[in-house]
Simulated scan of single mutants.
Amino acid sequence: MPNQKIDDIDRRILRALQLDAKISLSELADEVGLSASPCARRIRLLERGGTIKGYTAIVDQEQVGLPINAFASIKLERQREEDLDRFEDAVSRWPEVLDCYLMTGQRDYLMRIVAADLAAYERFIKDKLTRLDNIASIETSFALGQVKRSEVLPIQ
């Protein structure tokens, strides 16, 4: 159900769940001014409607040995629909690619790739990315540090 009608209570539920998805139903209900049963019903509707896509744990990259964030700008030789689809299908299977966006401007795609070190990133480039047909160029920038990262949308 795209473009689900969301009211102020739904927005409060979404804000609270974004800040703490492990909040208990009774705490959430109290926070948004509902009893538990109507609150649970609203959550189910938000999930079924696709507004809430899922729940996940945010894991510290460095703690699991993946401190490198590489941002790769990809230019394709051709931008026909089947070429875009083929590229996107391949990228969607690579766990190293955390984000990939189809872009406007001089580059076709921007990807965020995580790696254990520069050698691991080089293997990713050589073993996966450069083996795709239709790649015209790859430009990579490496993050020196993270200033801000958030999964919380500014829902008003």
Rank of each mutant, 00 (worst) to 15 (best):
R86M: 10
D85F: 02
L84V: 10
E77D: 08
I6E: 06
K148H: 03
Y55H: 13
E88T: 11
S26L: 13
R11G: 04
I138R: 02
P95A: 10
I135T: 03
E122W: 02
G50S: 07
A57Y: 15
Q156H: 14
A21L: 04
Q79E: 06
T56R: 13
G49A: 09
R93S: 10
N134R: 08
I52N: 10
S150P: 00
D30F: 03
D127A: 12
I138W: 00
Y109W: 07
P95W: 09
K22F: 03
Q18A: 10
K128S: 10
W94C: 02
M111I: 08
L25D: 15
T56W: 02
N3I: 05
V152P: 00
V91D: 01
I13D: 04
A119Q: 11
R11W: 08
L84K: 09
D108A: 01
A57K: 10
V32F: 05
L102Y: 10
N134W: 08
L132M: 15
Y109F: 15
I9D: 02
G49H: 09
G33T: 07
S137Y: 00
R78G: 00
L84F: 11
I52S: 04
A116K: 12
G49P: 07
I74F: 03
L110P: 00
K5C: 00
V97Q: 05
N3A: 13
R42F: 09
K53I: 14
K22S: 09
V114R: 14
P95T: 12
D30E: 15
R131S: 00
G105T: 06
E88A: 14
S150A: 02
A36E: 13
E27D: 15
I43A: 00
L25Q: 14
L129A: 08
R131A: 05
C100K: 01
L28N: 05
K53Q: 14
R12V: 01
W94L: 14
